[in-house]
């Protein structure tokens, strides 16, 4: 009879496959920018052989030119070299802060989702208090208590981003925990521990890692903002936020001192965000 061809042939959903090709020109540019950043972070000397701290008072305040493509600062240090050498700091701060945020969020979010009513209540009230402060303000609070510096500002940014992730992880874990496939595992007689490890954790946590790529960009911006306020890395350091801070007094006469570090921050944040979005779209199937 003529039924089987339509009904039993495997349909390997071609529509899905088409949706997965999310790499356009913007994504390629983002990949290139990130690749450059990673090279600059791992081996800055490859891109900029000079010394980022070499002072040359004679060359102070040079506008972009041959030999100093992005100009020099008030002490005659080469801006290009400093930006390249600052990439490592910015990237490490961004990744580390996000990692701190996500680990904290995992603990809080999973505890709230799976720990029973009272834990959920407690965690939720805590998150609400944290949410009441704008993220940066929360970071400022931490720095006020523990003093400025790169390490504290990284921790501060991590803490400030944790509540957002925690909420998402909690919602995700709850929906997975009540999903039909977890129920199906109960019906098969699986223990709570096994269901947690095999079904709930992977399905609740993996989608969050897409958000993390988005978060790194934001963390870079926040860390730079703290440095700009003089609360993170301090001026002689080749850190982008600190360079902005140093350049702000000469904004009228030496625009390149602030423009190029700012551009670096924007590019780094934009590149991670573009890639994060692409991953997100892909994951959304």
């Amino acid at each position: 009879m003529s039924l089987p061809p339509v009904s039993t042939v495997a349909a390997v959903a071609p529509a899905d496959r088409r949706g997965r090709r999310m790499i356009g020109p913007a994504q390629w540019v983002a990949v290139a920018v990130l690749a450059l950043l990673v090279v600059a972070a791992v081996a800055p000397a490859v891109l900029a052989p000079g010394d980022p701290f070499a002072i040359a008072p004679v060359d102070a305040f040079l506008s972009p030119r041959w030999g100093h493509p992005l100009g020099t600062d008030e002490s005659g240090r080469d801006i290009y070299t400093r930006i390249v050498h600052g990439a490592g700091t910015s990237l490490v701060i961004g990744v580390a802060a996000t990692a701190i945020g996500i680990v904290l969020a995992l603990v809080l979010g999973l505890a709230a989702a799976l720990g029973g009513r009272f834990v959920d209540f407690g965690v939720n009230r805590l998150l609400e208090v944290l949410f009441a402060f704008p993220g940066l303000l929360l970071a400022l609070l931490v720095i006020t208590v523990y003093g400025p510096g790169i390490v504290t500002s990284t921790i501060a940014v991590g803490l400030a981003t944790a509540p957002g992730y925690a909420r998402i992880i909690r919602a995700q874990a709850r929906s997975v925990a009540t999903s039909p496939y977890v129920e199906a595992a109960v019906v098969l007689g699986r223990s709570r521990g096994r269901i947690l490890v095999r079904h709930i954790l992977p399905n609740a946590v993996l989608p969050v890692f897409v958000l993390v790529t988005l978060g790194v960009g934001q963390a870079i911006v926040w860390a730079a903002a703290l440095s700009y306020l003089g609360l993170g890395a301090s001026p002689p350091a080749a850190e982008w936020g600190a360079m902005l801070y140093a350049g702000k007094n000469y904004l009228a006469t030496a625009w390149w001192m602030t423009f190029f570090p700012g551009l670096a921050i924007v590019l780094a944040a934009a590149a991670t965000t573009v890639l994060g979005r692409a991953l997100q779209t892909r994951g959304a199937r």
């Binding site: 039909p180 496939y181 199906a184």
Partner: peptide, 12 residues
């Protein structure tokens, strides 16, 4: 158990 929506009863 067999459910109406088989797809959602499988770990994706």
């Amino acid at each position: 158990a067999v459910y109406q929506d088989a797809l959602s009863s499988f770990d994706p």
